[in-house]
Simulated scan of single mutants.
Amino acid sequence: MSADEPMIRPARPEDGRALADLDRAAWSTLSEVSPAPLERESIFDEGHTPDQFLVAELDGRIVGYVRQVPSTPLACNRHVRQIQGLCVDGSLRGRGVGRLLVEAACEAARAGGARKLTLRVLGWNAPARHLYERCGFTVEGTLAEEFLIDGRYVDDVWMARRLTA
Rank of each mutant, 00 (worst) to 15 (best):
Q82F: 10
E57D: 06
Q52G: 07
M7D: 14
E14V: 07
R12Y: 02
H48W: 14
R17L: 00
L86F: 02
G90I: 01
C87D: 06
V55K: 00
D15W: 06
A11V: 11
R61F: 03
G47T: 15
D45Y: 08
F53E: 12
R9C: 02
R40M: 02
L19E: 05
C87R: 10
V97P: 01
A11I: 04
R17M: 00
R40G: 10
V63N: 00
S28G: 00
L54N: 01
G16R: 09
A25Q: 06
T72P: 01
T29Q: 00
I8Y: 06
A25M: 01
I8S: 07
L100Q: 14
P73E: 01
N77L: 15
V80F: 14
R24C: 07
R17Q: 02
T29K: 01
G16T: 12
V88Y: 05
E14F: 09
V80E: 09
R40I: 04
W27N: 03
R95D: 08
D89C: 00
D51S: 08
A20L: 01
L58F: 07
C76G: 12
A11G: 11
V55S: 06
G60K: 01
R40Q: 11
D15R: 04
H48Y: 13
T29W: 02
E14L: 06
S28V: 00
S71E: 14
L58R: 00
S42T: 15
Y65K: 02
A26N: 04
L38T: 15
D45L: 09
D59V: 08
L74W: 09
L58K: 00
D21R: 13
A75P: 06
S71C: 13
G96A: 04
V97N: 04
L74A: 13
P50C: 11
S42W: 05
E46T: 14
S34E: 13
L86E: 11
P37V: 15
R12M: 13
T29L: 03
E41L: 07
P13D: 14
F44M: 12
Q82V: 10
P35G: 05
S31N: 09
G98M: 02
C87Q: 10
R67P: 01
A11M: 08
A18F: 00
A11E: 15
L19C: 10
H79Q: 09
G60Q: 07
P73H: 01
S34V: 10
A36P: 11
V63W: 00
V55T: 03
I8D: 04
L30C: 02
P70Y: 10
R95C: 09
P37S: 12
D23M: 07
E57G: 00
R40H: 12
Q84C: 11
A11S: 15
G90P: 02
G94H: 07
A56E: 03
M7C: 12
C76R: 15
S31A: 13
Q52S: 10
I43Y: 10
A75L: 14
E46F: 03
A56M: 05
G94S: 08
T29A: 00
S31F: 04
T72Y: 12
G64E: 05
L58G: 00
A75I: 03
D89A: 09
A56Q: 05
Y65F: 14
D21Q: 13
E32S: 14
S34K: 07
P10W: 05
E39M: 12
D15N: 07
L22M: 06
G47Y: 14
G94R: 04
L38N: 12
P70R: 15
